Amino acid sequence: MRNFVSDRARDIPPSGIRKFFDLALTMSDVISLGVGEPDFRTPWNICEAGIYSVEQGATSYTPNRGLQTLRRALAIHLANRYQLRYSPDDEMIITTGVSEGLDIAIRAIVNPGDEVLIAEPSYVSYAPCVALAGGIPVPVECTEQDHFRLNPDKLQEKITPKSKALIVNFPNNPTGAIMRKEDLEPIADIVTDRDLMLISDEVYSELTYESPHVAAATVKDLRERTITLNGFSKAYAMTGWRIGYLCAPKEICDAALKIHQYVMLCAPAMGQIGALEALRSAEDEKTSMISEYRLRRNSFVAGLNRIGLSCHVPEGAFYAFPSVKGTGLSDVEFAERLLREQRVAVVPGSVFGAGGEYHLRCAYAVSRDELTEALGRMESFINGL
């Protein structure tokens, strides 16, 4: 049957995150810091809205772009919170999670042979989605010395006549880094001067701790060159509801909509109704979850540094990204042995690109008690090396 598998499907690697998560599932007494998913339940008022919608028969297709009520509420939310202004009628698509939004955004603009620059470390699906669209992923390393922010000089070095777009994700998965306005401005100049499109994955935009999130499309002239991706999974603990959204200038949005129509048709109706309720009435619950993440971050990062794993303070998302260089092990060796010997699951940083080598992604989206226990096990592992 191998002859029937396409070259592109055969050549893309399986998810490095899932490899460790699946292995952990076969073991007992494992503390998993591996999967980037909130440990909170979806706020009840959101669940209730979804349940009621099913009871009332809202189980059919919605418009391809998504429910108009949701798009209008989202347009107001984006304008008020981020000063992002998009027309809900022709510059917005409700997608089946941000993952689908990323896929249709890439396929809407990439031709075979186009190069797509990716700020790395980055979420594991970016490069494979580019490759599946026939594009060529080109990593741009973000280093610890730059606090894992995108360095404009390093971006310039990677641009060629074939460069078509740049993908960024801030707040970042896996590093927790953010980009402030002053960091984005030189990137905006490069994107404009070198005639690139920008795909900005901002799914962690609500999860910032010191500085408010700056939407890339609000910086300088980027609005007409930016595809903004976002969703409800992380901020509202709605990962399984699969509701994201894509915002872009009309011509780009129309191209993405055609792909969406053929491969997805529409996002789940119940999920869209839940998302609408999230915008209407879940602000207090969201704020409470973010406050808890901040407490976890502060104690966990301090603990990592105490046990000898140097870790910068992440300013967004819910990931710590400590270095294991001082242990004499690679990130893969460290993660594999830590799981087998101490039953703590983390993700090797190298699965997120070369810039993640000798680091670990540790999701602090678990209880403080579990984080304390995980730190104790990690300390025992290090002391035993």
Rank of each mutant, 00 (worst) to 15 (best):
L360K: 10
L198P: 06
W241G: 00
E292G: 04
H312C: 05
E373T: 06
F40V: 01
Y86R: 15
S87L: 14
V54R: 10
K154H: 14
Y236C: 05
G303P: 07
R41K: 13
L166Q: 02
A24E: 13
R280I: 07
L78A: 05
R41D: 11
G66M: 08
M92H: 09
A177K: 11
Q261G: 02
T42A: 13
I243P: 07
E277D: 10
L23Y: 11
L246E: 01
S211P: 00
V203W: 01
V35R: 13
D193A: 14
D11T: 07
V30R: 07
R194S: 02
L207T: 06
A75Y: 13
S211L: 01
D39R: 12
I382N: 06
Y61H: 13
C47S: 11
V351K: 03
V30C: 11
R242L: 12
F381M: 13
L155P: 01
P212V: 09
Y293P: 05
L222K: 02
P13F: 11
Y52V: 12
L360S: 10
P14A: 08
L265T: 15
F321N: 13
V332C: 06
M27S: 11
L279E: 10
L166C: 01
L375G: 12
G113E: 14
P348M: 07
T218W: 13
P13T: 09
L67Q: 07
A217C: 14
C129P: 00
L198H: 05
A108Y: 04
D114L: 05
E120D: 05
N230C: 14
Q342M: 08
V324H: 11
E185G: 04
A127N: 10
G355I: 02
T228E: 02
G376H: 08
V214R: 06
R361P: 00
L339Q: 08
V324L: 07
A317T: 12
A79P: 01
Y82S: 02
A165I: 00
G176R: 07
G328K: 14
S299P: 00
R2L: 14
F20T: 00
D90A: 01
S28A: 08
D90C: 07
L276N: 05
P171V: 04
G101M: 13
R297H: 05
V116N: 01
L222M: 11
Y82E: 03
